[in-house]
Write a protein that binds this DNA or RNA. Structure first.
Lengths: 120, 120
DNA sequence: AAGTTAAACCGACTGTCAATCGGTGTTGTA
DNA sequence: TACAACACCGATTGACAGTCGGTTTAACTT
């Protein structure tokens, strides 16, 4: 997460660049950062390209996309076919954090509907 | 999950009762079911009371609550204060499964608002 | 072309956690 | 008191994250 966070906020970086900040901060070896980057790459969470002879990594999914995937996983795990419960939970969670969220949610629904027209 | 699912759908049961259905179905020992029940109990996901000398287990949190907790965890893990992304994910997931869900979701929002008045 | 350095890559270890089981201790009840 | 039903305590396996060291590969330098 720290690595992803860093790349989301600071754009693309090579291992050395990430290590210079995160690694130093938590006293972690260069190799550890490298393995982490590679594993995230294998998971398709990062993209990379060779620049000179070091990889430069970049996030492959936006923060919100990843969150969406993860929330989706939760939903699938816990109530695959009970979609009504899912929707109810959404409303509940939204309201729990901040009452204004219900308005926001409604707004997003409408925005989504509008965008629907423009799609193929 | 299977155990939770069963208890959510069928109310309270003792180890034997759960095993009779789930255990048999997947060829799992009585002990396995029992350990699972106990671990869920330790995690506060189940409640239990002694009836004669066997525990009778019951869910401690509703399916929706658990989902709420889990989604909350995801959001906290990935971007603590970015609740907007969360709401967007909700709309996305709702719409992905079935377009009618957006209407349903809107409806639930309104129901929630109405119920709000009746609360303290 | 050889040497030095920077990276990538591979395998390993630890810690945690779920799934699974067997063995042992406990407790009502006949 | 003995037996059956049950709880409880490890133990094992398989994943997976975090971490690292060692080895190979590629590139720049002289």
């Amino acid at each position: 997460m720290a690595v992803l966070e860093y790349l989301w906020s600071n754009g693309e970086f090579d291992t050395k660049g990430v290590h210079a900040v995160l690694g130093k901060a938590r006293g972690i070896s260069h190799n550890t950062i490298q393995s982490t980057l590679e594993r995230l790459f294998k998971k398709k969470l990062l993209t990379r390209k060779k620049v000179s002879y070091a990889y430069v990594y970049q996030t492959a999914v936006a923060r919100d996309e990843l969150m969406g995937q993860m929330i989706n996983d939760v939903v699938n795990t816990i109530s695959k076919d009970n979609t009504d419960g899912m929707l109810a939970a959404f409303v509940d969670i939204a309201a729990r954090t901040d009452d204004a969220h219900l308005d926001k949610l409604e707004q997003l629904i409408n925005e989504y509907r509008s965008n629907q027209h423009k799609k193929s």
